[in-house]
Nucleic acid binder design. Structure first.
Lengths: 233, 233
DNA sequence: CCTTGTGAAGCTGTTCACAGCC
DNA sequence: GGCTGTGAACAGCTTCACAAGG
C-alpha cells in the first residue's frame, strides 16, 4: 500500500534501520532537476559553477540546493563552487543514473503512443522496452519500433526484457486490473497515468501523473486571483 | 517567479492578508481527488459515505481526509457521515469546478495531440479551446476538431476564447519563449510539460509535469530495493 | 452507540545565518 | 574575500486522540 504520489504525501517503504543514508523524499525529487541543470551547464561548456548558478538553472534557491547536496556528501569546494562534471556524476550515481532502467508501457492509446515515442527518456537512462495492450485490434501493430504484445504475455515481457518499471497508460476502468497484473509479474515500481487510485501491496511504489488534477489546481488559484480575494488590509 | 511545481515546494502568491480562507496547498492538491472519488460513489448509487469510505476511495487515510474537509467547513453529520452529492457540490464550488476553464495548448507534437484528444478533461470543466504551434507545417491542420493556429495569434486566441490556462507541450528549447508569449498574452496559469525550468513574472503560477523525473524517482527507490540497503538491525 | 471535527503533538521540509575552509 | 556546508529556528503538513454532537 505504499503510495508515492507525484503530489507529495509520500510514504517511506518499510526499511527500519541499518545504513539507511536517508535522503529526504523532497530532496530525491529535486535531484533529477539538478542533474538536468548540470547537464545543460556542461553542454554549454561550463566547468565550474556556484550554488547560485546551479540553483538559478534548476529553479530553486541557493540554500535549498546546498542543503540538498549536503545529504549526498561534500562535493563542492569552499570559495570556489562545484565542478560541474564531478557533481553531475555524483548525483547520477546516487539516483541510479549510471545504469539503464527498462520500462514497459501498458496501453497504447494516444498517451501510450506519445510516451513510447518520447525522445527525452534515453538521455536519462530510461529505456522503453515493450508495449502491451489488451485490445486485440492493437496487438501486433508496430508503434515507435515496438510490436504491441498482448498483456497476457506480461510475465514473459518483464522477465525477458528485464523490466523494472511499469507505466499504466490505460483508461481508469482498467487501471486496477493492470496494476494487479504488473505486480503479479514482479514489478515493484509503477507510474500511473490513469485518473484513479490503484491499490498495491506493501513494497510496491506507485507514483501518479494526473494532468486533470494539475489543471484543476491551477484553476483553483486562477479563481482566487480573479475573485476579489486580494483585499490586502 | 512564483513556481507551483507538481512535485511539492509551492509558493504562495503575494496576497498578504484579507479574507484569505487559507486552504493549505497540500489540501488543495487533494481536493480534486476527493471530487473524483465522490463522483465515482455517486455514479455507483451511493447517497451517503463515511470518511473511511471516501478516504479509501481516494487513497488517503481517514483523519487526513477529515482534516482536509474541515478547511472547507462542516459539511458532514456526526454519527452518520457525508451526503455524497452535497459534499461533491461543496468541493466543486471551492475549487472552481462550477465553471469551465478554457485552455490553450502550445505545441501539437505527440504530447500536444494526445492531450487535445483526451476525454477526461470535459467532465472536470476543462475545455481545450485552441491549439497553436510555431511550425508552419502544422498550422492549418485539424487535430481533434481544432484547426492549429500560429503562435503569433496567441493574444487573439486568448482574448477570443477567454483562455485562462496555457499548456506548454513543446520541446525544452522552446519552452521559455512560449512561456514569455503566454504571459505577454495575459495568461497567469501555466502547465509546463517541457523538461526545463521556465522563469515567469510574479503572480504567474507554473506547475510542472515531468515524466522523466517521475521515472527517475521510481528508479532511485528501485535501486535501493534491489541493493542490499535493507540491513534492518 | 456512531462518526465528524479539531486542538495538540510530532514530523518533515525550508529558510537563515554563520562557521569553516579554500 | 568568496562560497560551501550545516546547526538551529521556523513553517507547513500529518497524525492522533478525543471532545462534540447526531
Amino acid at each position: 500500500m505504499t503510495d508515492r504520489t507525484a503530489l507529495g504525501g509520500n510514504v517511506r517503504t518499510g526499511l527500519t534501520a541499518g545504513v539507511d543514508r536517508g535522503i529526504p523524499d523532497a530532496t530525491v525529487a529535486r535531484l533529477p532537476l539538478y542533474l538536468r541543470a548540470l547537464t545543460a551547464l556542461a553542454d554549454s561548456g561550463t566547468r565550474t559553477c556556484s550554488s547560485t548558478d546551479l540553483a538559478a538553472a534548476a529553479g530553486v534557491n541557493p540554500p535549498k540546493l546546498r542543503k540538498d547536496l549536503s545529504y549526498l556528501g561534500s562535493y563542492g569546494t569552499r570559495g570556489v563552487g562545484y565542478d560541474v562534471e564531478y557533481l553531475r556524476y555524483q548525483i547520477a550515481r546516487v539516483i541510479g543514473q549510471t545504469q539503464d532502467w527498462n520500462v514497459v508501457i501498458v496501453g497504447v492509446g494516444n498517451l501510450g503512443s506519445a510516451l513510447s515515442n518520447y525522445a527525452g527518456f534515453s538521455p536519462r537512462g530510461i529505456r522503453i522496452r515493450a508495449l502491451v495492450d489488451s485490445d486485440p485490434e492493437r496487438i501486433g501493430h508496430e508503434i515507435s519500433g515496438h510490436v504491441v504484445r498482448p498483456i497476457s504475455e506480461l510475465v514473459e515481457v518483464v522477465r525477458d526484457e528485464h523490466v523494472s518499471i511499469g507505466v499504466i497508460a490505460t483508461p481508469a476502468a482498467a487501471a486496477q486490473d493492470v496494476a494487479d497484473q504488473l505486480v503479479a509479474a514482479g514489478i515493484t515500481s509503477i507510474l500511473n497515468f490513469a485518473p484513479t487510485h490503484v491499490k498495491v501491496s506493501e513494497g510496491v511504489d506507485v507514483r501518479r501523473v494526473d494532468v486533470s488534477i494539475e489543471l484543476q489546481i491551477l484553476a483553483y488559484h486562477e479563481q482566487r486571483k480573479t475573485n476579489g480575494t486580494e483585499v490586502s488590509a
